[in-house]
Amino acid sequence: MGTKKITLKKVKNKISNIILINLRRIFNVLGYQISENTDKSKILELIKTVRPYETNLGLVRLGGIEDGGYVVPNDLIGIEACFSPGVDKESGFEIDCLKRGMQVYMADNSVDKPNIDSSKFNYNFIKKHIGTTSNEDYITFTDWVNSSNIETNRDLLLQMDIEGAEYLTILSADESIIKRFRIILIEFHFLERLWNDDFYSLVEPVFKKLLKTHTCIHIHPNNCSKIVKHNNIQIPPVLEFSFIRNDRFTNKEPQVNFPNELDNTNLNNIPDVILPKIWYAD
């Protein structure tokens, strides 16, 4: 019976793999992750893919001048309803939508009700988080939209700020639901973690799914976090993206004027964060 030769290098590699596997298990229990770094070329390609375009529609601002306000395409006439998961103290955006004749649907399990005067405005609110399953505390995005019983041929607007839950929410949503939204506004969180290959593998298909039917027309960094620079790539951890459905515009060209005159700081007591050029031009 022959003896199997094992080199010292193979032994070291095997031990290293065992240690890494166990470290991952330990850190996962503690709420941390160990992952391979994402290849720089993948990060660059993703950034290039999501770069914004200027369309023939123009831009306007909805909501307050600080946090809670968004730069949106000037294509609001005829939108039936705004869906706004994630409720904060500031509801200026939703009030602007109500003033424009939209129905407003809000969802959040962390508050009892929105900061909107119900004697002046009618709105729909459910005390549930948006998630990947529907139960007592959560409701899927698809179930939530369908529960409104709005006719499927009516256009909708989405404004989503749910502190990191946006990725799984979009991935689990029916594509037919995504297509119903003429305008999509999403604040994406933890983008500095794109260098973590596991996180990149979560984020990349989210943007790929959105860009099947929509085009990015604006990006604005939330100045709640400083820009993180790694491998000469600057990534703002929190970015507000504005998308328009592809059937709504007739022409587009790269948007290269940043910041936009409609942009404003989210928090006025700390320095502003300007979108790095790599996010809109070479």
Score class of each variant (00 low, 15 high):
residue 69 G to M: 11
residue 220 H to M: 08
residue 117 D to K: 08
residue 19 I to M: 03
residue 2 G to A: 08
residue 14 K to A: 15
residue 182 R to G: 03
residue 61 R to W: 12
residue 37 N to H: 03
residue 4 K to D: 03
residue 54 E to P: 02
residue 237 P to A: 06
residue 159 Q to S: 14
residue 212 K to Q: 02
residue 74 N to M: 04
residue 102 M to A: 08
residue 265 T to D: 04
residue 123 Y to E: 06
residue 267 L to A: 02
residue 86 G to E: 04
residue 150 I to S: 10
residue 2 G to I: 11
residue 131 G to Y: 05
residue 177 I to H: 05
residue 8 L to Y: 08
residue 155 D to R: 14
residue 209 K to E: 01
residue 152 T to Q: 13
residue 171 L to G: 07
residue 55 T to C: 13
residue 7 T to F: 01
residue 270 I to L: 02
residue 230 H to K: 15
residue 2 G to S: 09
residue 170 I to R: 01
residue 2 G to C: 07
residue 97 C to T: 06
residue 276 P to R: 10
residue 251 N to V: 05
residue 56 N to R: 08
residue 105 Y to E: 03
residue 81 A to P: 07
residue 124 N to W: 01
residue 68 G to T: 13
residue 135 N to F: 11
residue 67 D to H: 14
residue 61 R to A: 00
residue 32 Y to A: 05
residue 236 P to K: 12
residue 69 G to F: 10
residue 195 W to V: 06
residue 269 N to T: 14
residue 276 P to M: 11
residue 101 G to F: 09
residue 172 S to Y: 04
residue 141 F to R: 08
residue 241 F to V: 06
residue 223 N to D: 07
residue 254 P to Y: 01
residue 176 S to H: 13
residue 89 K to W: 10
residue 172 S to M: 11
residue 133 T to C: 06
residue 257 N to L: 10
residue 215 T to C: 06
residue 258 F to S: 09
residue 82 C to G: 05
residue 239 L to S: 05
residue 230 H to C: 05
residue 280 Y to W: 11
residue 19 I to K: 10
residue 277 K to T: 14
residue 97 C to N: 07
residue 250 T to L: 03
residue 120 K to A: 13
residue 98 L to M: 12
residue 246 N to G: 00
residue 261 E to W: 04
residue 94 E to Y: 11
residue 125 F to H: 08
residue 180 R to S: 05
residue 20 L to M: 12
residue 5 K to A: 09
residue 149 N to G: 04
residue 38 T to H: 03
residue 36 E to F: 13
residue 23 L to K: 12
residue 156 L to Q: 02
residue 90 E to P: 02
residue 216 C to A: 11
residue 249 F to L: 07
residue 62 L to Q: 09
residue 180 R to E: 02
residue 67 D to R: 14
residue 28 N to S: 14
residue 76 L to R: 10
residue 73 P to H: 11
residue 145 V to H: 09
